[in-house]
Design a protein around this nucleic acid. Structure first.
Lengths: 224, 224
DNA sequence: CGTACTCTTGAACAATATCAAATAAAGTGG
DNA sequence: CCACTTTATTTGATATTGTTCAAGAGTACG
């Protein structure tokens, strides 16, 4: 968990500063103006928005290597909260825009990242539009399995609360809990505690989630 | 179905060709490789994907001035079908990529369009995650009202079928029909036929749809 | 230990889907 | 232009899914 600083930056013209956030603290808030860009070095960040009627929608659980809510509009459409201790490389808005103009390689990276964010959002929309509760939770379990390395005990940690999961999948905490425990019941996952699990039947979940979608997205060597 | 050539282009380096599609024909299909870029000149295009289990999700109803399913991956994640007679300016993949490298202004435009597509997808995900059937349909009616000019008789045409609407909103045709007729019943819309309507109480729909979200997105003069 | 959470579980309820007609609109061939 | 067929939409009845409400069971923390 502990990380050491070091490693300046790939892009010479991009002056970034390492920042550290304690669990539960915010990297930025919805509506912040001229906010800069965070790239996660370690830890997990919850990216969410709150709608006018008070619903919280979690758009993503972002991890190391990912940009947090990367978009062109300077005013943040989302809030970002550290789920664990989080380190980021932070670039001010000004430096970000300057670099976007000057550094072709950086521009390309950002371009692709935004494209990826767009694809992710569409994938999420499809999940919400076409899949039932069990399928959504199956998809989420597979996401956790692929993104979070198992700990020493062999179990993958579930760092977010049931409420976080529910707000991400468009369900209630009760439904999320029921589906997870149903998977546990039938032996698809091994979940000795609410905050960790291990896959026992990946194929079953794959079949539910329909892992086949979005098989394309070849990045192709566009130099920009 | 028939095609005519003609009409050069705003960007000198971007050689586009005018294309025409008859209602019901496809501009391209999901999985097409190295597909080029369409910008709609006139008409309406349905952008959709079909999931592994056969569900169709309509991602967008795009109109004049919009790019159709603009993204960086060369292999199309979606299909696009003309809902009416459609004219587009088409650019081959090759020309598109060349232009992206050479023309800074074009690059900026594409950059912003992809960012916008991303924001739209997130908005759709929020709609699907947080709103009930009535609210989704209210939102859709407002969308129709804002995007499709009323005809000579003062009524806004509903060009898509109930099935198209359902597949866009993650509902069934019966539910869409019921909600629309409920709005008609209580005098919120005037819908003499299934394929046209007129708003009678916009405020009611605004309140349902929560039109307040996404009030930001100031484009700000980034030159790229 | 005891207090405060979060998670789980059960039961009743509500929203939406599904199934089944009925109606309306749009084509089609005479 | 008129019957007839076909398709889309509306409406009703019922089933299902997921939510809501209400306890109960773990777990964390002082």
């Amino acid at each position: 968990m502990a990380r050491f600083a070091a490693v300046p930056e790939a892009h010479a013209s991009l002056a970034s500063a390492r920042q550290v956030y304690a669990p539960g603290t915010h990297l930025f808030h919805q509506g912040d103006i001229e906010r800069g860009i965070h790239k996660i070095v370690s830890g997990t960040v919850t990216v969410y928005r709150v709608t006018a009627d008070g619903h919280r929608q979690i758009e993503a659980f972002s991890g190391p290597g990912e940009y947090v809510s990367l978009c062109l509009c300077a005013t943040s459409p989302t809030s970002a909260e550290a789920l664990s201790r989080v380190e980021t490389d932070y670039v001010s808005r000004e430096a970000f825009e300057r670099c976007l103009l000057q550094d072709a390689q950086f521009r390309q990276t950002v371009f692709r990242e935004i494209d990826k964010a767009s694809a992710d959002a569409r994938r999420q929309a499809t999940l919400l539009a076409c899949r039932c509760a069990k399928e959504r939770v199956a998809d989420f379990v597979l996401f956790l399995d692929s993104r979070f390395a198992p700990k020493a005990d062999g179990y993958t940690p579930i760092r977010m609360s049931r409420c976080d999961i529910a707000d991400h999948l468009g369900l209630t905490i009760e439904t999320v809990s029921r589906m997870l425990n149903q998977f546990k019941q039938i032996g698809v996952i091994d979940m000795p505690r609410a905050d960790r699990f291990r896959l026992r039947n990946r194929q079953y979940l794959n079949r539910l989630a329909g892992q086949n979608d979005e098989a394309d997205s070849r990045p192709h060597g566009l130099a920009l």
